[in-house]
Simulated assay, not measured.
Amino acid sequence: MIVKKLHNMGVKSEHAYLAAFASIGLTVAAWATSLKVEPGVNVDRADRWGLFVGEWAPTFFGLGVALSHYEQQDGSLTHIHEA
């Protein structure tokens, strides 16, 4: 299973969630950069770049959920304790 292999490689659910949020920021950056770098091209191309990168976020969020479930079963889920 892919989730087990990623877990054994040291990838945690927190890593997947961080990647998801980073890809959201990268989506905006890719869209804005495409608008500025290619001024002669219409907005459609910039939108396609933004949508392409924007598809990564749900994938990373889903992977984070899968890893979180695996960590709960494995007992390795880290909990944040309030002081």
Rank of each mutant, 00 (worst) to 15 (best):
V53T: 13
I80K: 02
L67C: 05
G64D: 06
S76R: 01
G25D: 02
D47M: 12
N42V: 01
W31L: 12
L63I: 14
D47T: 13
W31H: 10
S23G: 06
V28A: 09
L26T: 09
T78F: 12
D47L: 13
Y70T: 01
A16E: 07
L67R: 01
G64T: 06
G25C: 11
D74M: 07
L6H: 05
W49V: 05
A22C: 13
V3P: 02
A46I: 10
E71S: 02
S34N: 13
G25M: 09
R48Q: 08
A16S: 14
A57S: 15
L51F: 15
V11T: 12
K4C: 04
L77M: 13
M1N: 09
S34C: 10
T78G: 02
L18H: 06
H15Q: 06
R45A: 09
E14K: 11
L6K: 02
H79A: 11
D47Q: 10
R45D: 03
L35I: 14
E55Q: 11
A19I: 10
A20M: 07
G62D: 10
W56G: 02
F21H: 03
G54K: 01
F61Y: 14
A83C: 04
K5S: 02
P39H: 04
V41Y: 10
Y17I: 13
E55G: 14
V43E: 09
H69L: 14
G75Q: 04
M9H: 06
G50H: 04
E71Y: 08
G25T: 04
H81W: 06
W49N: 08
M9W: 10
A19M: 15
A29Q: 06
L51A: 14
L63E: 04
A16C: 15
L67W: 08
R48C: 01
V65L: 09
A83H: 13
I2V: 11
A29E: 09
G40A: 12
S68C: 04
L6T: 04
H79T: 14
T33E: 02
T33G: 03
A20H: 02
V53A: 05
G40K: 08
L63T: 08
A16Q: 08
W31I: 03
V65T: 08
T33D: 04
K5G: 00
K5E: 08
R48S: 01
G75V: 11
S68N: 07
V41N: 04
A16D: 07
D74C: 03
T27S: 05
K12A: 02
A46W: 10
L18E: 12
E82F: 13
L77F: 11
L63D: 00
F52L: 11
K5N: 03
L67Q: 02
M1H: 10
A20R: 02
N42Y: 12
N8K: 05
H7M: 01
A30I: 08
Q73G: 11
R48F: 14
S13C: 13
V43L: 05
L35V: 15
G40Q: 09
H81K: 08
Q73E: 14
L18I: 12
G50C: 07
G75L: 08
